[in-house]
């Protein structure tokens, strides 16, 4: 398969979870053939403006067709994990729609100028210094940019604001933190260290302070962000070394982590990724800021349990493991009964 959707059930860090190109050995002719086609069309096009115009038209049509095909086949954007994600997609589509209109208009103008007959005297008509035109191409884009700027305001407020229900950005106030779950995510070269405050216990009086001074009964997990459906999760984003960016594509969530800062963020989990048959859809965490040699290794997964009870069960199991006074791992992984041994 040339285009391959990532695994849907089990998380396999060995393969990218999102849409990716997967060249199999027999498909290596594709880039070669494309290069050859491009070269010969270029040779052809240099002979006449008409060929160039046709090529530009063909290009625009292919692009539109391919985009539409991807959108129809669900290859365009990953699943959205919450309502906010759907809003972000709406904005994306709006911007795509507006820019497409102008793309096709400019391409049409370009093609028109290339195919029309040259004037009889052989000289082009200059438009330099034409005030009407200049005002037009300032006002029209300004209008559309203003439309985009206003359209995105409520979403931006919800995303960057620290309360989920205000359409005006609100700064973080530890005293009025109404989240259900506190998680400190610490980016480090090259993994995510998550620390959970036990939601069954009293919330830390100052979550910001808690983010930098761990409590004794916190639960520590690597590379896994767990929550439950319908939770308001307060993320405290930190880093121990360089700038990382905490990216969860399904949530359309991306926030840099800056050295020396604790950045609060609010995450709403409107959907679960546990299917009814108990399997798990892969929701990925990735680092979106080149942070060093093993940047690509900074991957994790999000698990949104169906209910708070499921989450609490997972948390208490993890806590039991963390406070083990005997080695349970030792008994479970004797070399004799490992699956790899039977190969």
């Amino acid at each position: 398969m040339l285009l391959d959707k990532g695994p849907s059930a089990a998380f396999e860090a060995t393969e990218p979870a999102v849409l990716h190109f997967n060249w199999s050995a027999s498909e290596h002719w594709i880039p070669l053939a494309l290069t050859a086609v491009a070269f010969f069309t270029w040779l052809l096009a240099t002979r006449s403006n008409k060929y160039w115009a046709a090529l530009i038209g063909l290009n625009a049509a292919t692009l539109a067709g391919y985009t539409a095909w991807c959108a129809c086949n669900q290859l365009w954007l990953p699943e959205t994990a919450n309502d906010l994600g759907a809003e972000v997609d709406g904005l994306f589509n709006l911007v795509l729609f507006l820019t497409s209109i102008f793309y096709f208009i400019t391409q049409a103008v370009l093609i028109y100028t290339m195919v029309q007959k040259p004037p009889a005297n052989g000289r082009a008509k200059p438009v330099h210094g034409n005030h009407t035109l200049e005002i037009a191409w300032m006002l029209v884009p300004a209008f559309f940019l203003a439309v985009i700027a206003i359209a995105q305001l409520p979403t931006w407020a919800k995303m960057k604001g620290q309360t989920s229900d205000s359409s005006i950005p609100v700064g973080y106030d530890p005293a009025t933190d109404s989240s259900d779950l506190l998680v400190t995510v610490t980016g480090k070269q090259w993994e995510w260290r998550m620390r959970y405050a036990d939601p069954a216990k009293a919330k830390p009086t100052n979550p910001l302070l808690w983010a930098s001074t761990p409590a004794a009964d916190d639960v520590h997990v690597v590379n896994e962000l767990h929550a439950w459906q319908g939770a308001k999760v307060r993320l405290m984003l930190r880093t121990t070394d360089v700038i990382h960016s905490f990216f969860m594509p399904q949530f359309r969530f991306k926030q840099d982590m800056l050295p020396g800062k604790t950045i609060p963020a609010l995450l709403r989990t409107d959907k679960t990724n546990i299917n009814s048959d108990g399997t798990e859809r892969c929701w990925e965490i990735a680092c979106a800021e080149l942070c060093g040699g093993n940047h690509y290794r900074m991957r994790g997964k999000v698990v949104v349990h169906a209910t708070r009870e499921d989450f609490m069960r997972w948390l208490s199991e993890t806590k039991t493991k963390q406070t083990a006074r005997k080695d349970s791992l030792a008994a479970a992984t004797k070399p004799s009964d490992t699956p790899a041994g039977k190969e």
Binding site: A13, V222, N294
Partner: peptide, 27 residues
């Protein structure tokens, strides 16, 4: 012991550059 190496692979070494590989297939 083999489990010591497995623990390091699963959990990584906190405080160093050795990351966790827990999301790989167990095999």
């Amino acid at each position: 012991r083999r489990v010591d190496i497995l623990r390091t692979l699963h959990q990584g070494l906190d405080g160093t550059s050795m990351p966790s590989f827990a999301l790989l297939a167990e095999e």
